[in-house]
Amino acid sequence: MGFQLAPTAAAEGFRLEAHDSVGSTNAIALERARAGDLGKLWVVSKKQESGRGRRGRAWATPEGNLAATLLLIVDRDLKTAATLGFVAGLALSDALEAVVPGRVAIAADGAGDRRGNRFELKWPNDVLAKGAKMAGILLESTMLDADRFALAIGIGVNVVAHPEDVPYPATSLKALGADCAAETLFLALSDAWSENMRLWNEGRGLELIRQRWLAHAAGLGGQVAVRVEGNVVRGVFETIDEDCRFVIRDDTGAVHKIAAGDVHFGAVASASAT
């Protein structure tokens, strides 16, 4: 089976551009926007040669994994549009639950989840299984004119392989015992995106998205450390606020609201955040 859009996505006007191999799906999506594309375009591939993660880190997508980018043309403020990263996390979590058989037991460890979620969301943009990173989300934007910008929402999923030489635990669907093709996962993702985008409702439904995200949040209520511009903030992960900032209460009772940073859980949080 090749890549296909879910009928719900096609009915809502989403389009699909599929590749066997790409440099970066985000880069292609932004190129299409600069060339005049009107958005609602999914760019997908099972192999990505030069994908990127947060802070310019490489994100490898070997043959059989999923690289997908949704291009949107946005005429609202960038701060609101940035919360679509949380929509993407929920959509991917929903898609994974839809395609991974219930017999595949993915008991959480590491960050520790007690709510029965097989897939957890790590602030701001990772999806975990058994405490290990299985997917990452990267938002990139470019101004088109005074009133509009293009937003590329990149989603990379370890379907058949995961990196071994990284400083954090990583896994893949195959390693977890799930036999799922990238095409099958994308079909479910395009459907789940449409549903969660409707809930977001151009930002008006952000509180509902925030509550749904918290129900899947990794490490909620536990000890965390966040590296922010060379400094480390430690404490208890209490919530994400109305602007989706990461909220920590430290040992003195002071509350820290963090807009960007690298989060570490458990023993790593207690010792260091390097």
Rank of each mutant, 00 (worst) to 15 (best):
S190W: 00
I209F: 08
I209V: 10
R198C: 02
S190I: 02
L206C: 08
E202D: 15
R204P: 08
L185N: 12
E195S: 14
I209D: 05
M197R: 11
G203T: 11
A182Q: 07
L214P: 00
A215I: 07
H216T: 04
S194C: 14
E195R: 15
A188Q: 07
T184R: 11
S194I: 07
N196V: 09
A192D: 03
A218K: 03
L189G: 05
G219D: 01
G203V: 09
E202Y: 12
R210E: 08
E195F: 12
G219L: 06
A182T: 08
N201K: 07
W213R: 05
W200Y: 09
M197L: 15
L199H: 03
L199W: 00
L187G: 14
L206Q: 11
L206S: 12
I209G: 03
H216V: 01
A215H: 07
S194G: 02
A182S: 14
H216G: 10
L208K: 14
A192R: 15
S190A: 01
Q211F: 03
Q211L: 07
M197T: 06
R204V: 12
L199D: 08
L185V: 11
T184M: 04
A218S: 07
L214G: 04
L214V: 06
E183S: 15
L199V: 13
A215P: 00
N201F: 05
L206N: 10
A188W: 09
A218Q: 04
L214C: 06
T184K: 10
T184F: 07
A188V: 10
A192N: 08
A218F: 06
I209R: 08
D191E: 15
L206A: 12
G205M: 04
